[in-house]
Amino acid sequence: MSDVADRVRKIVVEHLGVEEEKVTENASFIDDLGADSLDTVELVMAFEEEFGIEIPDDAAETIQTFGDAVKFISEAQ
């Protein structure tokens, strides 16, 4: 597992209060991990902070699963 995935998983676990095992590749933040729309905004902000990147709003809307987040961040770095 890549360093990016580990760091993203840590943020997701911390912000959504979910078990680490549930944060799988295809886990949807809203459908599977109990996030609401405000939680997802906060998650994206936490990713920006952690990785020192900027995620524009239109890109943020495409980040719906853990896998989406890891892929976007890996490419953005």
Partner: peptide, 10 residues
């Protein structure tokens, strides 16, 4: 301003 939490107002 981009760092303001969505939970600040509520």
């Amino acid at each position: 301003p981009r760092r303001v939490s969505p939970f600040f107002i509520p």
